Structures are given as C-alpha cells and as structure tokens.
Simulated scan of single mutants.
Amino acid sequence: MSKEPPSTSDNPAQEGSEYVFRLDTRKLREIAERNGGGTGYAIARRAGISESSAYRILSGEAQPDLNSAMRIAEAYDIDLRTVIKRIPVEAAA
C-alpha cells in the first residue's frame, strides 16, 4: 500500500496515512445517466460486463477488477481517474 495521503489533499505526493482506491459509484451513475442510463442493466450492457457484477459494483458490495473498470471507462469515454477516489484504509475497512 502507498503512504500517500487520502484524496482530500491537493498534493497526492505528501506523506501521510495509507489509502486504497475505490470506484466512486455516485460519479459513475451521474456519467451513465447523462449518457442514456444509470442502472446496473444499462451499464452492464454498454460496458460488456455481467449484469450481476454491475449491480454489485453500484451497490458498493464489490469493486471492479481492472478489466471491468477499463471497460466501464471506455464505454463512457471517461478517464478512469475521474471515477476513482482515494479512501483512507481505516474508512475502507
């Protein structure tokens, strides 16, 4: 794990607490809704991932693997960094 601070800092190179990356499902839904549908079904169809995976990702039950995350990003023509957030390890547990 990295020793960089959580995303609340403007300088990600500062030393600080450990963090993990998580998909920001709120941002993903907003982007998906602007592009024709923010449901798990619509995201699954557009990104080419399973519907159950899409629903688990949107509910926060699961995080996408890199392949699924890239498929989602490409399907909505977004930079993956725009829908990924840093969360302190303590908050992610």
Rank of each mutant, 00 (worst) to 15 (best):
S2F: 02
E4Q: 15
E4K: 14
S7N: 05
T8W: 00
S9C: 09
S9G: 03
S9Q: 07
S9K: 07
D10N: 14
N11S: 11
N11G: 11
Q14F: 08
E15R: 12
E15Q: 15
G16Q: 15
G16S: 15
S17Q: 15
E18I: 08
E18H: 11
Y19M: 04
Y19D: 06
V20N: 03
V20M: 06
V20D: 03
F21G: 09
L23A: 01
D24S: 09
R26Q: 12
R26N: 14
K27E: 06
K27Y: 00
L28C: 10
L28N: 08
R29D: 01
R29K: 14
I31P: 00
I31R: 00
I31L: 00
R34E: 14
N35G: 03
G37S: 05
G38I: 03
T39I: 08
T39D: 12
Y41T: 15
A42F: 01
R45K: 15
R46H: 04
R46T: 04
A47T: 10
A47E: 12
G48T: 05
G48A: 03
I49R: 06
S50T: 14
S50F: 04
E51C: 06
E51H: 02
S53D: 14
R56H: 11
R56M: 10
L58H: 10
L58T: 11
S59T: 09
G60E: 07
G60Q: 07
P64V: 08
N67E: 13
N67H: 13
A69P: 01
R71G: 04
I72L: 08
A75L: 01
Y76K: 02
Y76W: 00
I78R: 02
D79E: 12
D79A: 11
D79Y: 07
T82V: 12
T82N: 14
V83A: 05
K85N: 01
K85W: 00
K85F: 00
R86Y: 04
I87G: 05
A91F: 03
A92E: 06
